[in-house]
Computed example of a mutant assay.
Amino acid sequence: MAQKLKVNDKLSNSGQLLKVAPFRSYIRKTAPHRHNGYFEIIYLNQGSGSHTIDGVTYAIQPPILFMMQKEQMHHWDIHTEPKGYVLIVKKAFFQDSLDSVLQELLFKLSGYTILENIEHQQLHPLFTLLEEELNTSSPYQQSNLEGLLKALFGRCLSYASQQAEKKDISNSLFLAYKKLIEQEDYRLQNIKDYAALLHTSPQNLNHACRKAVQLSASDYLAEELIREAKRLLLYTDMSVAEIGFHLHFSDPSHFSKYFKRYTQVTPKNFRSEKG
C-alpha cells in the first residue's frame, strides 16, 4: 500500500476550534508532515536552526513568524532551545463570528509564509492575552478572542506591508482564485472553468494573477499543481502513475509531460535526484 503524507492534528481530540499555546521547547528535529485542516501561526522569539516549508528552508532568526497553510509540508531542525507561541485556528471558528473583518484579515495574512523584522514587545503580549482568554470562562469569551485576533492579525499585516518583497494580496479576485484552487483539489485544469466559477472572464483572471504574483492564471495553477506533485514525490511512496491520477490527470504520460514542461525533469528523475 502506498505511503500517504503524514498528517498531524493538534485539535482532533479536544474539539477545539482555536488553540494558543507556548511552542514546545523540546522540539529539535521533526519528520516532514502537514496539518489537518487548520491554519497555524508560529511565533518564535528565541531559538536557532531552520524551518523547511514545501522544500524551502528558512533560517530561524527571532523574532520571527511562520504562517502554515493546511496543505503545506514542513519540518523543523532546531539547534537551540526555542521559545514562542503557536496559534491554531480552524475555519469553523469563524462560522460563529459575525465579524467579517476578522476572516478577511486572516485571508490576507495567509498570503505570506514568513514575516521578519517584527517587534517582540508588540506581539508577545497579544499571544499571552489570547492564551489567558482561552483559559477563562466568560460569556464574552468569543468577542474577546475575536478582538485579540484582529489586533494580532492586523499587527502582522503591518509588518508584512513593510517587508521588502511585497505582494498585492489585497486583490480579491486573485484571493478567490487561490481559495478555489484549494477547494477544487486540482480537479479543474482549465482556466475557463475557474473563471466561470468566479463569474469573470479568463482575461480578468489573468490580469488579477499578474498583478498579484506576476504569473498568468494558468502558470499560477501549474505552480500550485507542481508544488503538490513534488510533495507527493518527495514524501510518499506513491508511484508516478498513482500521483498522476491523484492529481486528476487522464493518464500517467500526460502527467509526466506536464511535470517535465514546468521542471525540465520527469517525475521519476526528480524523485531519484531529490530522494
Results as ranks from 00 to 15, higher is better:
V265A: 12
F127A: 04
R24L: 15
L129G: 05
S216W: 09
Q61K: 07
L221C: 06
S138Y: 12
Y140W: 09
F94V: 11
L205C: 05
S158P: 04
M68Y: 04
K150N: 13
F23C: 12
L148F: 15
L65Y: 03
Q264W: 05
K178E: 01
K29N: 12
N190P: 03
I118R: 04
R28C: 10
N206A: 10
V20W: 00
M1E: 10
R271V: 09
P82T: 02
F255Y: 08
A92N: 09
Y220V: 12
K108Q: 01
L44C: 14
A208K: 04
C156L: 15
S138Q: 12
F259Y: 01
A176W: 03
P32Q: 15
Q189H: 08
L11T: 14
C209R: 05
F93C: 10
F107C: 07
K178C: 00
D219T: 07
G154D: 01
H254Q: 13
S48A: 13
L44W: 14
R155I: 10
S216H: 09
E224T: 03
H79V: 11
N171P: 11
C209N: 05
Y194C: 06
S143H: 14
L205G: 03
D77Q: 13
S239F: 13
G147Y: 04
E40G: 01
V101Y: 14
L130D: 06
E182Q: 10
L233S: 11
F174D: 02
F153R: 11
I41E: 07
N8I: 15
V265G: 06
